[in-house]
Computed example of a mutant assay.
Amino acid sequence: MNDQDEYREEEQSSVKQDRRKGEGGRSGNLALGIILVGLVAVFIFSAITGLFVFLHANKDKFLRPAATTEVTAPAQTDKVTEKSLPSERETEETDPGFILPDITPTDPQNGKTVLTIPQIVEKTKPAVVAIYTDVVVSDQFGELSQNIVSGSGFIISPDGYVVTNAHVIENARSIHVNLEDGRAFETKLVGSDSYADIAVLKIDSKDLPFVELGDSSQLLIGELAIAIGNPTGRLSGTVTSGIISALDRELSQTPIALIQTDAALNPGNSGGALLNTYGEVIGINQLK
């Protein structure tokens, strides 16, 4: 009995030892598997990270369209000379604030200088006058009253001859002109033609500013036109600009062919100067 008991105890102890050995082997295998999985994960992460870094560093190369080689025949080019290149002065003097009327004038005539609008105004405005007349009129009951009629005119000679419309000074008892510089004169009527609607006055003075007369037969439709006058009788020296809209307009009220312009004209502009791009008078403004 004792021998059997001892044999059983030895057999049980050997079984326990074998179980412990088996459990120890499985634990070692598990640890080794975890290590291998971790190494694989680190390798994959490193590869992905490296790929992203490579793509980011070379993104311009991948996004840029592929260059293509195009075979063409040799082009015929003109030889560039110094004359064909814009000079530095031409580039510097380009006017960034140019306006359309500045490019509408005709080519210079007989060596005349094409002027800008401010230059035209500076040259001619001192010779454009405001005209005021005293007129006696009767109403429907026969009662007389004195009114003041306003208009415009321009001096054509340094000794004081003034041109205006005949209807501006019609039935006037007295005629006064005011110059741009503030001087005022009472004038005399030299003569008038109501059919042509033109009149000439005389200022008793010398060395007055005056305008030059141009040639209206040289006008072109679309050319620059400047009007200076005394609209409403209270705005002397007003300047408006436009173009020549039409030529040789015929109206039954006058035997003279008329110039049509889109420059703004108002009551009081009658008798004022219509100027071309050289600062010359090429017409008398008429609004009645």
Rank of each mutant, 00 (worst) to 15 (best):
Y195L: 15
T164R: 05
V200F: 14
A184V: 07
D193S: 12
V162F: 00
D159R: 03
K188F: 09
N165Q: 06
Y195R: 15
L179V: 01
S174E: 08
N178P: 00
S192D: 10
H176T: 08
T187L: 05
N178F: 03
I198R: 12
R183S: 07
P158R: 12
D193N: 13
V163H: 01
G191T: 10
Y195V: 15
S157Q: 12
N178V: 05
R183H: 08
Y161I: 07
D193T: 10
A166L: 04
V162Y: 01
D197H: 11
G160D: 09
P158E: 13
I175S: 05
A184M: 07
I169V: 13
V162M: 01
G182R: 04
E170P: 00
S174W: 03
S194P: 10
D159Q: 09
D181E: 02
S192Q: 15
A166R: 08
G160Y: 11
S157H: 08
P158G: 12
V200M: 14
Y195Q: 15
R183F: 03
G182F: 06
N165A: 06
D193A: 10
S192H: 10
L189G: 10
A199G: 12
L189I: 13
S194A: 14
E186P: 01
S157M: 08
I198C: 09
V200R: 05
E170I: 05
A166S: 14
V168Q: 05
V177G: 01
L189F: 10
Y195C: 04
R173Q: 11
D181A: 04
N165S: 02
D159V: 11
V163I: 14
D197F: 14
H176K: 11
E180A: 10
G160A: 08
A184L: 00
R173C: 00
Y195E: 15
D159T: 09
D193E: 14
N171I: 03
D193I: 11
D181R: 00
V168H: 02
E186Y: 01
A199Y: 06
G191D: 11
F185I: 03
P158H: 11
A166Q: 09
I175K: 02
K188P: 00
A199S: 14
V163A: 05
E170Q: 14
N165M: 04
G160V: 11
Y161F: 13
T164Y: 06
S194Q: 15
A172P: 09
L179W: 02
A199T: 10
Y161D: 05
Y161K: 10
L179S: 04
V168D: 07
A184I: 00
V162I: 06
V200D: 05
F185P: 01
P158S: 15
Y195A: 14
S192K: 15
A199F: 09
N178R: 08
S174N: 08
P158I: 05
N171R: 14
H176N: 10
D181V: 03
A184E: 07
K188M: 11
S192Y: 12
E170C: 00
H176S: 08
V177M: 03
V200L: 15
E170A: 13
D197I: 09
V163E: 00
L189S: 12
V190F: 07
I169T: 05
G191Q: 11
D193P: 12
D181K: 04
T187S: 06
L179A: 02
V162R: 00
G191I: 11
D181I: 02
P158N: 13
A184F: 00
D181F: 01
S194F: 12
